[in-house]
């Protein structure tokens, strides 16, 4: 329970410190808004067109692969822990080798299909 209290304290303290510093800044700093200051920066011109540009997300496929591999990593952590504690167990090793080999085959397939490059 003590550890949770500390982590909760850090959360509250971090937010409180930020509010304090922002409040101090609010007290000390001048406020003279002009029309120009409210405009989004675009190299000195009036902003052209929509601000949310259509940005080609060339990494859409990466994002899907990321989900798969992130889950794999989440599995690897408890495995590494128990493997470290009983390294004499063959079963643990072979099991994980098979699991990883299947995933790597998937990665190689994605690679071959050019999913891992922007085109």
């Amino acid at each position: 329970m003590f550890q949770q209290i500390i982590i909760a304290c850090f959360l509250v303290f971090g937010i409180a410190f930020m509010l304090l510093a922002l409040g101090l800044s609010w007290l000390l700093s001048p406020t003279r808004p002009t029309k120009g200051k409210g405009i989004t920066f675009e190299c000195g011109m009036e902003p052209l067109g929509l601000p949310w540009v259509r940005y080609r997300s060339g990494f859409f496929v990466y994002a899907i692969l990321y989900v798969i591999f992130d889950i794999e990593t989440a599995f690897l952590y408890p495995w590494a822990l128990s493997f470290g504690r009983m390294a004499t167990n063959w079963f643990l090793l072979v099991e994980m080798l098979i699991f990883v080999a299947i995933l790597m085959a998937g990665l190689l397939y994605a690679w071959k299909e050019k999913a891992l490059s922007w085109h």
């Binding site: 990494f59 990466y62 994002a63 990321y66 591999f69 992130d70 794999e72 990593t73 690897l76 952590y77 590494a80 822990l81 493997f83 470290g84 504690r85 390294a87």
Partner: peptide, 20 residues
């Protein structure tokens, strides 16, 4: 999405060695 998986994986061997 690029660095996170290699980062997590590279922290694994010390976990295996220490068992904690």
């Amino acid at each position: 999405i690029t660095y996170e998986i290699p980062l997590l994986l590279s922290a694994l061997p010390p976990v295996m060695l220490a068992g904690s």
